[in-house]
Amino acid sequence: MNHGTKIPAIQVRQLTMAYGDFVIQRELSFDVGRGDIFIIMGASGCGKSTLLKHLVGLNAPAAGEIFFDNVRFTPENSAGYDRILRSFGVLFQSGALWSSMTLAENIMLAMDQYTLFTRQEKMERASFKLGLVGLAGYEGYYPAQISGGMRKRAGLARAMALDPQILFCDEPSAGLDPLSARRIDDLILELRESLGTTFVVVTHELASIFAIGSNSIFLGPVGQTAIAHGDPTTLRDTSRDSRVKEFLFRGEKS
């Protein structure tokens, strides 16, 4: 599904994020290329999840602009806004599954709204998505009946419901056992490979960062701006910034 264009999937220009007067990060500018697995990293509390919330439109920027495919992402541009919303999926940090619906219903809701599949077809698609995240057979379970790690994986399955072009994942492998975490990484790589999906991933699992990341942004402390951009492996090997190096080497001397 490569569009064959050089236009980045997402462009962020001079984005400043703030809660009231409290500035989280200022003047962030970066591009997420099509088919990239873009990692947002930085110390805890520096605004990684907040950046993700801005990218998916849940928080309004204090200043700056975000473009998807060269179309400005803002509620004022209502036709474009809805189309963009439909082009991506979001995995929330806590899963954020709709607790009054079963896992299958959670995944099928987006299809109910936006597709004309038959019920049978929707059910099959939901089962397949659950199978992809290692939850085959859990269609009829409610979110409260499964564990936190399973909820996160079900959240990923829901985010994939409409086969989005872009997937935003807030800590997809945090709280998972090593094998499940590895499966998620493999799934992300596979989706990019086979469908050309672009990923924006907030994570601080180093193993995962190096295994899947093809580009990244490293956020500085609260109130400041990004310290570094680029392929995480290259950053680790060539960055001169001590904070980036320490982070990527887990504080151990290189």
């Binding site: 919330k53 954020a96 709204q113």
Partner: peptide, 16 residues
């Protein structure tokens, strides 16, 4: 409770 669990955010990001 849906607000607390980010379930309403999840709806909004779907464009619902």
């Amino acid at each position: 409770t849906m607000q607390v669990n980010e379930e309403i955010d999840a709806l909004e990001t779907l464009g619902i």
